[in-house]
């Protein structure tokens, strides 16, 4: 039984939750899902399975973009 933490920026609808849980069960088997709402991630979804975090949040993408800006400017 895997405990999964699913973080989104807004509360998910029951439909969406069922959809996600279906997909995750295919990968993990029995799962126990914990949903968290964190506005700070701006958008997207983060799935944490106890060891690895699959980070699809907008916030992280924005951070990466910022890093690209800085490294481009610095190399000029």
């Amino acid at each position: 039984m895997r405990k999964l933490t699913i973080t989104t920026s807004k509360e998910l609808s029951l439909e969406k939750k069922a959809d996600i849980e279906g997909k995750l069960r295919k990968k993990y088997g029995e799962i126990l899902t914990i949903y968290r709402v964190d506005e700070a991630i701006v958008g997207g979804i983060i799935v944490f399975d106890g060891e690895i975090a699959y980070d699809g949040s907008i916030k992280t993408q924005l951070s990466k973009l910022k890093e690209k800006f800085v490294s481009e400017l610095e190399s000029q």
């Binding site: 933490t5 944490f48 106890g50 060891e51 690895i52 975090a53 699959y54 980070d55 699809g56 992280t60 993408q61 990466k64 973009l65 690209k68 800006f69 481009e72 400017l73 000029q76």
Partner: peptide, 25 residues
């Protein structure tokens, strides 16, 4: 102007990739 040019260029070329890394709770 240089900064804005770089930002536009990088944003255009940016590929969204999920970040997979070890984490904890």
């Amino acid at each position: 102007s240089e900064i804005i040019r770089t930002m536009l260029k990088e944003t255009g070329a940016f590929k969204k990739e999920s970040d997979v890394r070890p984490a904890g709770r």
